[in-house]
Nucleic acid binder design. Structure first.
Lengths: 206, 206
DNA sequence: TGTACATCAGTGAACGCGCGTTCACTGATGTAC
DNA sequence: TGTACATCAGTGAACGCGCGTTCACTGATGTAC
């Protein structure tokens, strides 16, 4: 990032690396067995430290979770930013949704943890929704689609339309990981079809 | 249920009542603080028993969770069965969705627990999706709407369409409880509008 | 370049906690005669 | 109706466990002169 601005000392670089190793270990643990598998002792073991050593890098378990969630958020954002920007906005909306679902599939436990770290009052992400990178991408794309006259929200605004798209793919992603996790169906084409149908329905013509 | 078939002895009736008290206590605890607040000791305390006493009624904590989830499922089913059956099927689909969301709102922690008891491998509901009462109601309504020519799934089947509707409201319900829990917006009209839009898009005309 | 000292990174052992579950027990309820 | 006995419902204390965190410590790394 700003290495030139403030060149890091070797100590600081080592510190950073260990910090990252802790976060990586935490995310791996979450991905393997969900949040309930995450403990200071297990993280420490995974990176060959004593549990007490972690407190050199994070003040508490909560801090580690928060940092790990922020990192997962970034990964999700990367998934969504990988969508081809040359597509027409409405089509891009569909692809954004599919990217969201793909992320949920590939990092399922991480994805779930991301939701439920927020659910029960623990470890709030500090920022409001609007600033989540991934949501911002969605928001901008909806705006573009509206500017291009491809969709219309009519009585509602950009945020609202973005929210509904999000809800749609969110539901698809989560159902797949929870209630439908044992169903042997390839939902990918279905999801794409339904999302297209919905966005078609937002055309200005109606 | 079948009281006439096998009249219960007083003992059995007492047993049933205590069993129910345990489940009620469990659901209350979940509703108040989520799954993490649920412990044998807390349940026992709430009904003035010793923790050991619970084992007269359930073999393990897992069994209690499973039974409590089944009960929550039934309550959800009741919400959905309360939808006015005289409405045209397509309209009924919308109302079913709204009922689903309303349930999630009213029993938020219970609703979340319901999802996530399944997520990480613990306490599977024994039955496959198709037999969940609430999903069956949805399935039948979609079928009716198709029979009435109000919607068409075209390349897909009843199950698929039902799944997409479910995913939509599921996403709305969960987002509201997790990421958007602090947003002060009345999502109800938005949700209804979006759901109507989607179902309109499933009309045979297109 | 060498020495004295301060800071840092990391450890091992212990803390107190809440948990699910078990077990020997006891008094109450029901049953048989 | 009364008595002897079996079953049931429920308890209190303890088990072993894994947890987050603290703390006195030690050796390594860096700094100042």
């Amino acid at each position: 990032m700003n290495q030139a601005a403030t060149p890091l000392t070797p100590r600081e670089r080592r510190h950073q690396r260990t910090r990252q190793a802790i976060l990586d270990a935490a995310l791996e643990l979450i991905n393997q067995g969900g949040m309930k598998e995450l403990s200071m002792r297990k993280i420490a073991e995974r990176i060959d430290y004593s549990p007490a050593g972690l407190y050199e890098y994070f003040g508490s378990k909560e801090e580690i979770i928060a940092a790990a969630c922020a990192q997962a958020e970034q990964r999700l954002e990367a998934y969504m930013k990988a969508v081809d920007p040359s597509l027409p906005p409405a089509q891009r909306l569909v692809e954004l949704g599919m990217a969201y679902i793909r992320f949920a599939q590939n990092y399922s436990e991480q994805f779930i943890a991301l939701q439920f770290s927020q659910a029960s009052g623990q470890t709030e992400l500090p920022a409001p929704v609007e600033t989540h990178g991934s949501f911002k991408v969605l928001l901008e794309t909806v705006q573009e689609a509206m500017n291009a006259g491809e969709i219309s929200a009519e009585p509602y605004d950009v945020f609202t339309v973005a929210y509904t798209c999000w809800a749609f793919v969110h539901g698809m992603a989560l159902l797949r990981l929870t209630t439908l996790k044992d169903v042997e169906v390839d939902f990918e084409p279905v999801n794409r079809w339904a999302l297209e149908k919905y966005i078609e329905g937002l055309r200005t013509t109606s």
